[in-house]
């Protein structure tokens, strides 16, 4: 069960509208993710980027519109197939290894596959030496890496990263970008919320720009950055 063996989930959001109290935080947002596509979601603070991810994950209800997460066989995807790395992931109060064990158990990963998968993930995020250390003792950057490993331990069919590189040093950023590109090459659709246009330019196949809850740009990354450059 190698990490790059991926069964993608089809994600489609149609005319999504999300309210927070009386305020509309998402308005008429539609998007469809292609397998293996890395979508960079950009926009100013409060544009609705995190809300969009939360809506896809079912963390916030849609006031209107529709969100479908479909497996290759046409069945609805389980929540554990959505690999959502929260902006502030909560570390369970147990060891690094136990955090990953917990995620694998939650996603009903076959017991025989858990040990090698955990070893692969810990090596991937360079936390193998901390396997028995409490997650509480990790730095912010290490916690972020553990959060990514924990999400991948569930063998998701779509990966959503909410400013997942905020606390990472450049080496860790490069490493994460490299691994995400590998996962995408294996067919994993990815939504990556980022404030860094450089990062979007490095990783994204497509860029969506949100502003005040609506999509203002939805273009291929090359076109988006070419038009941005010409605007300058």
């Amino acid at each position: 069960m190698a990490l790059t063996e991926i069964t993608p989930v089809d994600v489609e959001l149609t005319d999504a509208r999300v309210l927070r109290g009386d305020m509309e935080v998402l308005s008429g947002v539609s998007l469809r993710l292609q397998p293996g596509e890395i979508l960079a979601l950009i926009g100013p603070n409060g544009a609705g980027k995190s809300t969009l991810l939360s809506a896809i994950a079912g963390l916030v209800p849609l006031a209107a519109g529709n969100c479908t997460l479909t497996e290759a066989d046409g069945q609805d995807a389980a929540i554990t197939r959505i690999g959502y790395v929260l902006q502030k992931p909560v570390m369970l109060r147990r060891s690094v290894g136990a955090n990953i064990d917990f995620a694998m158990a939650a996603a009903r990963i076959p017991v025989s596959a858990r040990k090698p998968l955990k070893a692969e993930l810990l090596a991937m995020v360079e936390l193998a030496k901390y396997e028995h250390t409490s997650a509480y003792h990790l730095s912010q950057g290490e916690r972020q890496r553990l959060a990514v490993a924990r999400v991948l331990a569930m063998r998701p069919g779509v990966l959503m990263l909410d400013e997942a590189t905020n606390s990472l040093d450049q080496k860790s950023v490069d490493l994460l970008e490299h691994h995400v590109r590998e996962l995408a090459a294996g067919g994993m659709p990815v939504i990556w919320v980022t404030h860094s246009l450089d990062q979007a330019a490095r990783v994204a196949d497509r860029v969506i720009r949100l502003e005040k809850g609506t999509i203002t740009h939805n273009e291929k990354a090359d076109d988006f950055f070419a038009s941005s450059a010409s605007e300058k």
Partner: peptide, 16 residues
């Protein structure tokens, strides 16, 4: 309150 979103994403049943 702190764990709510994370536990939702783990797909846990109420008892779990």
């Amino acid at each position: 309150r702190a764990y709510d979103e994370q536990l939702h994403l783990f797909g846990l049943k109420p008892f779990e």
